[in-house]
Design a protein around this nucleic acid. Structure first.
Lengths: 221, 221
DNA sequence: TCCTAACAAACGAGCGATTGTTTGGCAAAT
DNA sequence: ATTTGCCAAACAATCGCTCGTTTGTTAGGA
């Protein structure tokens, strides 16, 4: 793509991408333009993909001009990283809340799966682009994105490690396939027809459970 | 300055995925420029994504100029559709060969899974872009791509329908999650470390098998 | 065996549009 | 007086694509 005169010098990439930005001190509406940009960018990235979305589109959706975007974000790529981080934050919080009060390891995994699907398929647009493999042209920020993603997958990994899997099942591969099936739902899920997101997640766990729980089985519907 | 068919090395490319195009009258080996473009486009699309790959890049990789591309393909999007079709053809053929001599339904699914992963992770670049959700800017060709994909997923659906699944497992959801886990492998698979593609696919079936086969268990490795 | 017309396949300049980004200025708020 | 947030206008680069031209090869007629 373009990227203008390749300008490397400044390179003040904040590691936590916590853009130090003055908090409006007035008690008026905390009308956060930066947040607004994030929302619109997430929606457009999700709908059209990263490369196919222009900064002018994002700006227009936000109600500002293209150039004004660069007051809030150093580049289009850093904007993407910020959206990705916000999405991962939502995902992590959702999962942790879902498993908080569940004891049985398999039930905890099912709760996490349900939460994952719900957040993925029903919640904001922040995740529709977080899940698939991110744009190749993200280049230098790749490591940061992977780090953000690992933070979440580690949670799933912990849940999996508590399961009593058959000896011939590799826990790591189990986690990868599990997350894969969950994340893939966003390529086929349509909100109008079929099962609800939470049930889609729960049923995946039911399929993977080596020995279905004795007693009452879940009522599907 | 080469005009006319430049005789390059034999370059025996897959004779299968061919489209209607003027067949050279001489019985000499037809050096298929169109096929060459498909290969290079697949490689670049896989490496950088559709939108991030320019027609000039594809042309340069093929050894021609950008304008010459349009003699073979009407547009960049039609080129993508052709690459997608070629990839799906490979996938379908691979799967059908893999299950041909297998009888047991679960073993047939395992064979298909192994073949899928092998083609996906080891074979040509034709599939690295086939699997994830295709570029949003593909627009008018979306229906055609989905049709191509459905042709393959129907094969998997047939295999799943022959399984004796527990009553509480929905066959359709089983198929979706199964394909999802398979396709997601390409986001995390690295050829150097870990299991081989075929084993990754087989183990997924092992995880999903409600009652592991009695008698001898599969020798892993 | 030559001439000629047709054809296939590529060149290469350049079109208009769009890309991400920079810059200077300006009104309001601090 | 300074900072904040944005506008307006450009910037260079690149995008997909068109089109007239040019070349090597082939077929047919004389």
């Amino acid at each position: 793509m373009n990227r203008a005169p390749v300008r490397q010098p400044p390179k003040t990439v904040s590691p936590s991408l916590r853009q130090t930005r003055p908090v409006p001190k007035s008690e008026a509406i905390p009308f956060d333009r930066r947040q607004q940009i994030l929302v619109e960018a997430a929606r457009l990235f999700a709908a059209k993909g990263f490369e196919a979305t222009s900064v002018r589109e994002i700006a227009q959706a936000t109600g500002i001009l293209a150039g004004s975007l660069y007051y809030h974000f150093a580049s289009k790529e850093e904007l993407f990283v910020a959206v990705h981080a916000a999405g991962m934050e939502i995902l992590i919080r959702t999962a942790q809340e879902a498993i908080r009060d569940v004891g049985d390891p398999w039930d905890r995994l099912a709760a996490a799966a349900a939460a994952h699907c719900t957040a993925l398929l029903e919640s904001s647009d922040f995740m529709l682009l977080v899940v698939p493999n991110f744009p190749k042209s993200i280049g230098q920020y790749r490591a940061e994105l992977i780090h953000q993603r690992d933070a979440y997958e580690g949670i799933i990994g912990d849940l999996v490690s508590k399961l009593d899997l058959p000896a011939e099942i590799d826990a790591k591969l189990f986690r990868l396939h599990f997350i894969g099936a969950l994340n893939w739902t966003q390529t086929w899920y349509r909100p109008t027809s079929g099962l609800a997101p939470a049930e889609i997640g729960r049923q995946l766990v039911a399929m993977l459970r080596p020995f279905p729980p004795s007693g009452v089985t879940a009522t599907v519907g």
